[in-house]
């Protein structure tokens, strides 16, 4: 299968200018690649830089050196040096992001939150709505909530709205930041199913999963941030 994403010698440290200029090294020469249809799980103890690395893959964090290249429409783009405009374009069409936290916008309904990524790429409103409804159903978000703004939802409901939003568009690359954290087993397995489907259609997936059972279900390879080795799973 074709490589979709590759990180080469990515290093990053945080410099806390207002706390005595303390330097915290987080990533040292991290390198890996992810193919289509494959799920790479970032592994390592708390504080080993998993989350920082995942955020760097999305262009949310800068890196000090190294390259993060992603294939978009037959071109390779280096996220580590791309312009904000190019990164926004990538996020619209190529890289999806699912975290456990929803940044709710006042007065926007759950259904609209989920549909938006499809509308942003010029999708048909009717089809977008149908797909959003299907996802909300699969993730067991009660239909009487769909027309309401998620700001008042429970944490778990907000999280599932966010997951539906992340899977509404068939992104070639998916970044998952503990999507199953604090979900019950029914909903966690619905998410695992969505990840499996994404892999089957050829998505390259990178994720962080603390739940070892979920991790074993979805991971093809592990990338260990402590030793920085990619190992084949199972």
């Amino acid at each position: 299968m074709e490589t979709m994403l590759r990180a080469s010698e990515v290093s990053k440290r945080f410099v806390l200018h207002n706390q005595g200029g303390v330097e915290l090294p987080v990533l040292t020469q991290a390198s890996f690649s992810v193919n289509q249809g494959e799920c790479l799980v970032l592994n390592g103890r708390s504080g080993s830089g998993k989350s920082t690395l995942l955020r760097a893959l999305y262009g949310n964090y800068l890196v000090d050196s190294g390259r993060i290249e992603v294939q978009a429409d037959g071109y390779w783009l280096d996220i580590a040096s791309a312009t904000p405009r190019a990164i926004l374009q990538l996020r619209r069409n190529t890289i999806g992001w699912v975290s456990q936290f929803l940044r709710a916008i006042p007065r926007v309904s759950a259904l609209d939150v989920v549909m938006q990524p499809l509308l942003d790429v010029g999708g048909d409103a009717k089809q977008a709505k149908r797909k959003a409804q299907q996802l909300l159903e699969r993730l067991n978000v009660p239909s009487h909530l769909w027309a309401l703004a998620p700001a008042t939802f429970s944490g778990g409901e907000q999280q599932r709205v966010n997951i539906a939003r992340g899977f509404v568009l068939d992104y070639p690359v998916l970044l998952l930041d503990e999507p199953t954290a604090s979900l019950d087993s029914t909903n966690a397995s619905a998410v695992v199913e969505l990840i499996d489907q994404a892999k089957q259609r050829g998505a390259a997936v990178v994720g962080i999963f603390h739940d070892s059972q979920v991790r074993e279900q979805v991971a093809d390879r592990l990338y260990d941030l402590s030793t920085q080795d990619a190992t084949v799973q199972g």
Binding site: R6, S8, S31, Y75, W76, L77, T83, A86, Q89
Partner: peptide, 21 residues
Amino acid sequence: MTAMNSVISKSGPVQQKIHGQ
């Protein structure tokens, strides 16, 4: 790490392209 580098150099320089009109 060196294997990785050779993969990258094979694909040539990174190209940037912005889509849309």
